[in-house]
Nucleic acid binder design. Structure first.
Length: 493
RNA sequence: GUGGCCAUAGUUUAAUGGUAGAACAGCGGGUUGUGGUCUCGCUAGCGAGGGUUCAAUUCCCUCUGGCCACCCCA
């Protein structure tokens, strides 16, 4: 209801708006010291005459800061970084591409809070995982609640699914989201404390084709960005068969426990499956003959897994059966997969992301039993691969017209003209803060403008502007009223 | 959390136990209102703290941050 809003903003009625243009245009201004509302011309006058106000003395409290200060300037918190305008083209490209393709596949965008109750993550990710035990940003808020910055997105989405009764929507529900995640880990290349993920979740279907579909989706997005990936895939089986396998593995390794590396001794107790992807050579030797997870799969899971692979074969997605893919979060079952760069599969932080099934998570968090499947892509890692491979994002065309002005009077007119041209759809840029024409033309050139519109004292008096062709240097005087038409004519060529 | 390497202008860098040059970028000029080349000028730096020394950007220690590997994961 835009009309109503307008009417409430100090304008008596729509009729008044039409009859009294000046009133509508007038910016509300308060004359210093009076509290009276003045309209434009009067206000300018009042401001000109008024005495400079005395600045209240602001005493700043000395801040207790341990962080390095360089000439009084703080640096960003460790593991956090700025994404500068110069780099934004990569981010925009990723986000646009991911969003477009996800929507084409019928996925809907959702945003969930960055903070959630700590217990949500404890119950979903798993109480004994490193992510929860060591890497979560936790704090108590002013109301005494234990809050955590989300270390991943799935838990929040599942919470929202349950909370809003989304099981009443047509199933499966196909969702995606992107945003920052937080983990307190030691920063390293490809690893930040605030990092960005693109997440996809499908809730309410057990079908193997869904597993394949999300893999295809991730693969397609990466491919569209120019990145070739290989999918490493495995099946963890049902929760029961997984527990069963853990016991088998435990029994197998028990006698050799002392030979394992220190980390694996730890893993043996905490998460024995992790021993499978230890990089230590000796551990690998020990594991080489160990019973495999695939052999412990229950019949249903095996059937499901085979079916997923068949679907992938059907669409020619390159995959590698990798029994070492076990995933770090507790909620996964059956299909688990990770995406690796096709050329350098052994790089340390080389996984772009991964995912799998989490058929019991919804129920575990208090919802009705709902099978689900999803994945996360690390946007930071995808972008660093794009840069490493020297892939250039599509460039946005530079504004074709640059607006230059000479003198104070012209500047006032230029501000108005800028808005007029913007509204008319003319791709325009300018820098009203600059004075010299020389500098402005220099900028126009740097920005790659095809035309410069020049307004000066002379043009102001004549009611004209100059249109300069930046390539040929030809200039033409055109009527102030016909600028849009003249520019449109020239830009269409 | 463990181990290793590193830290000079906004960026990339040079040299030095006696407080620092350069390139690019930025800003401003090269006659009053005309760019792309050229030319001149200006701005700007030893991450922080402590120690050794007559003197430290340079040597030592601590902190902070970055990078790399482990761990973990995205």
């Amino acid at each position: 209801m835009p009309h109503r809003i307008k009417a409430q903003r100090g304008v008596k009625s729509r009729k008044a708006m039409r009859t009294s243009k000046k009133t509508v245009k007038a910016v509300k201004n308060v004359k210093p010291g009076t509290g009276r509302i003045l309209h434009s011309k009067h206000a300018v006058h009042a401001v000109k005459k008024s005495k400079p106000a005395q600045n209240p003395v602001v005493k700043s409290e000395p801040e207790v800061v341990r962080r390095t200060i360089k000439k009084g300037v703080l640096q960003s918190v460790r593991g956090m970084r700025d994404i500068l305008p110069h780099d934004f083209r990569y981010w925009r490209w990723f986000k646009d591409t991911a969003r477009t393709i996800a929507e084409q596949y019928g996925y809907q965008e959702i945003d969930v809070p960055i903070v959630e109750d700590v217990s949500l993550f404890r119950r979903s990710i798993g109480d004994v995982t490193d992510v929860v035990q060591k890497e979560m940003y936790e704090f108590t808020d002013a109301g005494g609640d234990r809050i955590a910055l989300r270390p991943e997105a799935t838990a929040g989405i599942v919470r929202a699914y349950i909370e809003h009764g989304m099981l009443n929507l047509p199933q499966p529900l196909k969702l995606f989201t992107m945003g920052p995640m937080f983990r307190y880990d030691r920063p390293q290349s490809g690893r930040y404390r605030q990092f960005y993920q693109f997440n996809v979740e499908v809730l309410g279907s057990e079908a193997s084709v869904i597993d394949a579909e999300v893999i295809v989706l991730a693969y397609t997005i990466l491919k569209e960005l120019g990145i070739e990936t290989t999918v490493h895939i495995n099946s963890l089986g049902s929760s029961e068969s997984r527990i069963q396998y853990k016991k088998i593995l435990q029994a197998y390794l028990k006698s050799r426990k002392n030979e394992l590396c220190d980390d694996c001794q730890e893993r043996f107790l905490k998460n024995i499956l992790r021993v499978l992807d230890c990089k230590n050579e000796h551990c690998q030797q020990l594991i080489a003959d160990a019973p495999e997870l695939v052999d412990s799969l229950d019949d249903e899971s095996r059937k499901h897994f085979v079916s997923v692979l068949e679907h992938l074969d059907e669409v020619d997605i390159p995959y590698v059966l990798n029994p070492r893919i076990v995933r770090g979060l507790d909620y996964y079952n059956r299909t688990a997969f990770e995406f690796f760069s096709a050329d350098q599969e052994n790089g340390r932080q080389s996984a772009f992301g991964g995912g799998g099934r989490y058929d019991s998570l919804v129920e575990q968090l208090g919802g009705r039993s709902t099978p689900a499947c999803g994945f996360a892509l690390g946007i930071d890692r995808v972008i660093s691969a794009i840069r490493e491979q020297k892939i250039e994002p599509p460039t946005q065309p530079a504004p074709a017209v640059y607006l230059a002005q000479i003198g104070d009077q012209a500047r006032k007119r230029a501000l108005q003209l800028f808005e007029r041209l913007r509204k008319a759809g003319v791709p325009i840029s300018g820098n009203l803060a600059k004075d010299g024409l020389r500098q402005q033309l220099e900028l126009a050139d740097k920005k790659g403008a095809r035309f410069a519109v020049i307004v000066g004292q002379k043009e102001l008096i004549d009611g004209t502007v100059l249109i300069r062709d930046m390539e040929s240097g030809m200039q033409e005087t055109v009527d102030f009223k016909k600028i849009e038409k003249e520019l449109e004519k020239r830009l269409k060529i």
